[in-house]
Design a protein around this nucleic acid. Structure first.
Lengths: 207, 207, 207, 207
DNA sequence: AATGAATGAGCGTTCATTCAT
DNA sequence: CATGAATGAACGCTCATTCAT
């Protein structure tokens, strides 16, 4: 069941996402959001019912998009060899997380608010696990993977590692060449490399 | 320079840590804290100067302890073989994070408040990198490790993965046997196993 | 540059003026003001930004009016003889102070808050001195005044004496006939008489 | 009935007087006072019962002293000629007010707190009126004063004028020669001169 | 006789939300 | 459909005072 958002709502959600990622949910007032989005303070309540409900909508909006994007992505790789598929999945996840780091930077932190959101996210994670499972199984069968690592652990490591570097930018950037503007580009490259090595090693893939 | 906290201050900090981990810094009012800690609202300002300063003290309190504990720990393994040392380090980190999950659950999220804290944390992470570096280097020299993975990536993966499972308890527990009470015990075991496999594989260690 | 106030703002300022004159600035809470003005506590911050800024507005509101009124008044007597002009000025000042006694009762006391206000008031006092100077000089030239008293001393005496009787109502009313309701009327008459005698005597005017 | 104060109480009252004159009663906290007086915060309540009662004691302390000093002073002039007596009284009052300007700067403002204080002050003012009355009457009889001005008006003018210059230092000092340090000395001289001229002129005294 | 830890009330302000238009 | 004025609740904090020692 797909929910539609009006243009005005999306405008608000985009601003809200950015601010909440920076200052947290409680740290971001509806006045902050409405000021930055150039709308009236009353509009958040007006469009979403309340600030809390706006947050739920924000999750739905972003998770929904993420699921769709992921579904489309899986289609594009469905005919590849498992080792290629795996590499693509890892790269895709890193790329997505870094691109929507506003969202992923806070999503796990602020989701104390609504269980529906938790479930939406949960389902998405399970989808990832399932997709990985199939790829790994296929690789095991075809003999390119020697060991069957647990997909939920791989998912935790993929998502956890990337989110950690997003949140601890000041730590991770020490080990990156290049200036601060290139942080996203450089960290993407470094993370892709590391996580590929990590997962492939885990599966006993011979390079 | 070690800062001392009175019994009353620690009592407040413990409560504050738990609540802030659950509801965030702004989401937790001094009235929430004082109610749960069975003290007067005025005491937070009285003991720490302000809510903000209490937060800084909370970081110092926990990070300080963590650094000390880690320093002591490294002493206990200083004479071991690198593969043993590495295993111990991984297990130690997982254990610590899960034990003090209240703190580690929010530490990277709420540290927009004070740069001194950021630096304290940064230094600690760098210490971890340094310790890992030495162990890996030793293993390379002795020949048990075939590949020299980047320590900062390993640190990111270790910390990121564990924190992810803490924050996404509802996801990770699906894949755990046992009832909810055993979550910590079971996830600890599972995480230790996964992360050991992960890191050792990364280093080309032959099991 | 004249500042405009909305009806609601004036409503608040009038109440605030009365309460602050009675209980002082710190002694008057925004809750006191909002209760008496039948508005919400939040409105003081809403309309003026803060309690402090409300105070600045209160000064501007009243001093501005006072200056305007005084300027208009001086026009009405500009063609008179100096002895008539002087009498009118004295009577005007007494009348004004007693009418706006709320304000003049606290204005010099509470102005530790804002230097701009101090300067506004200072300028007004200097205007009074200047006006008096001209009248006295004219009277000296025309021969009705024999001695040239200092205008700043006269201003201090005029304002000081009236404010003293306002603040020490319980003292001054002992010497007044009539009941308490007539205090303003009676004290106005008595003060005008006394201060006219005083100033004219000072100038050597022969009655 | 004379009240005795302990050394410690006087120490507190002196500090309190200075601070209250600067920042008002509500604007001065017991912490301010205790910090400046180098005593424990609890001492104000301990010695006086409450901050409010301390204020009452402060009035009593200062008014009592003033009355005593004034009583002693009147003894020293009791054998003089009325015009000399009058001059001495005026000079004495100006001197006293300027010397204890801390007190007189706030006394009429902050006396909303206690009616007993109001009465104490009232009685003192009435004493002044009585003393002046006698002198004027004597002068009328001896023929040096031609007109019988009202003593309560003279008292109002004397006290009011001096207090005005204390409170509006920034106004009055414009008309004074000399640097800021000499303000008290210079304003005392100027005020004595002005008020003597004023009162003597009022009584029709021929210089 | 004196302290300092601790209290409860009240402070000015900001919050998300409502409501009349 | 959208606004901005207005609200009541809650915020972090400071206050004068109390109380155990």
């Amino acid at each position: 069941m797909k929910k539609k958002f009006t243009e005005k709502q999306i405008q608000i959600l985009d601003v809200a996402e950015e601010l909440i990622a920076q200052k947290g949910f409680e740290g971001t007032s509806v006045r902050d959001i409405s000021a930055k989005a150039n709308i009236n303070v009353a509009m958040i309540s007006y469009y979403f019912g309340s600030k809390e409900k706006m947050m739920v909508n924000l999750y739905q909006y972003r998770v929904q998009k993420t699921r769709e994007t992921f579904a489309e992505f899986t289609q594009t790789i469905k005919d590849g060899k498992p080792e290629m598929q795996l590499k693509e999945i890892i790269n895709f996840i890193v790329k997505q997380l870094l691109t929507y780091n506003y969202f992923h930077g806070f999503v796990t932190q602020e989701l104390r608010h609504d269980d529906r959101v938790k479930n939406t996210l949960l389902e998405f994670y399970q989808t990832c696990v399932k997709v990985l499972d199939e790829v790994i199984q296929k690789g095991i069968v075809s003999g390119v993977f020697k060991r069957a690592a647990k997909s939920e652990d791989i998912v935790s490591t993929l998502l956890g590692t990337v989110v950690f570097t997003i949140r601890n930018k000041n730590f991770y950037e020490i080990y990156l060449k290049g200036n601060e503007q290139d942080y996203l580009t450089n960290s993407e490259k470094k993370l892709k490399n590391h996580l590929n090595l990590c997962v492939f090693a885990l599966l006993g893939y011979q390079i």
